[in-house]
Amino acid sequence: MIALIGLLIGVALGLLLQPDVPLWLQPYLPIAIVAALDAMFGGLRARLEGVFDEKVFVVSFVGNAVIAALIVFLGDQLGVGSQLSTGVVVVLGIRIFANVAGIRRRVFGA
């Protein structure tokens, strides 16, 4: 419940404030979102399995975002930014799918 409220507050904040994203930060925005989604679904699955831990959740969120941004930044410096972004999205996407599969098994028993 608190999670849903938090998400709604965040969306409302983002839509209301409409902060200007600086140009150098723009390539990291989609990556950050995918990393955040990964952490979110991981947390949801853990919650449904009854092993949720706040510290793990926060650390996994921050860690995911930082590592993803770092990889993309490094790729940009090396000239393979788009390829590394693809790699990050693929890995995180696989994790999201696996977590959603776990959630599905929990919720629907299928």
Partner: peptide
């Protein structure tokens, strides 16, 4: 912490 992280996630999505 959960609230903070999720607020941040929502903000990110909305901004994007």
């Amino acid at each position: 912490g959960v609230l903070l992280v999720l607020v941040l996630t929502g903000t990110l999505i909305a901004v994007a």
